[in-house]
Design a protein around this nucleic acid. Structure first.
Lengths: 134, 134
DNA sequence: ATTAATGCAAACGGTTTGCACTACT
DNA sequence: AGTAGTGCAAACCGTTTGCATTAAT
């Protein structure tokens, strides 16, 4: 199936399984933990190495969260969704592609820059918290 | 002068000096190194602690670079400038406040979100690299 | 004399590496 | 049989911490 000279091992299966049910984003460290609850013998290096492979295959993409930790996005939604984080209420959510497009357009207009918003989490304040503050 | 119950020590002086001549942004680790070349006895903990203090005073602000490392912005330009990074050519630069404003407006319009662009580096492709690619 | 700030050294968390071993193919 | 992939353990890097010591006020 997904072989390009790659091997299909139980641990890869496990990692992909965990990735699948974590639809959206997970930090690498989180992933290690979740794998470990699933199979306590899981070892970090394997997880990290598998993530590298998956990234090469284009199945996941890594970015960095607010605190700088590696974060992975899975599946077809790997594209242009932006990650938002409210530093007041701690909320995390994402922008739908259409909405993200407007922001991308702004970057383009401002500096001829093609931003890859999926790579990082943008920090700020959500509408609710902003209104609450004033 | 800048005392609010704080003490003026040689090592703080050194750190501020280094910060000053690094106008713009430096990673914390970089800062430690530069301080060490200036005074080899410099120890990381002092630097990090001083940075915390300076941040509390509002003199610096920390964010995270592309690789997730802590990065500090100094001086009056602490405000709303965005950090851009081109993953193709490796270029780094920033958006002037006026230009950044347009992007902020887009975030506001898209999701009623007040982004703090100064907190992170946005990854993408600069105009030149984009054109070169196509 | 107070007590804020330092230096040191050790610990941390997340991630990476070398190497011998295992097990897919 | 061949070699991709694993497990382990140790190292890495940036950062944080506890504690005894120093030095600014």
């Amino acid at each position: 199936m997904r072989e390009r000279g790659l091997r299909w091992t139980p641990q890869r299966r496990a990692i992909i399984e965990v990735l699948a049910e974590a639809r959206g984003h997970v930090t690498a460290a989180d992933l290690v933990d979740r794998c470990r609850t699933l199979d306590p013998t899981t070892v970090p290096s394997t997880v990290y190495r598998t993530l590298d492979v998956l990234e090469e295959l284009g199945l996941v993409r890594h970015g960095h969260g607010t605190d700088g930790r590696e974060e992975f996005h899975v599946g077809p939604a790997v594209a242009q969704h932006a990650h938002l984080y409210c530093s007041v209420c701690g909320g995390r959510w994402e922008l739908t592609d259409e909405r993200a497009d407007a922001v991308l357009a702004a970057f383009r207009a401002a500096d001829d820059f093609e931003a890859d918003l999926s790579h990082m989490t943008v920090v700020g304040r959500c509408g609710a918290c902003r209104r609450a503050a004033s």
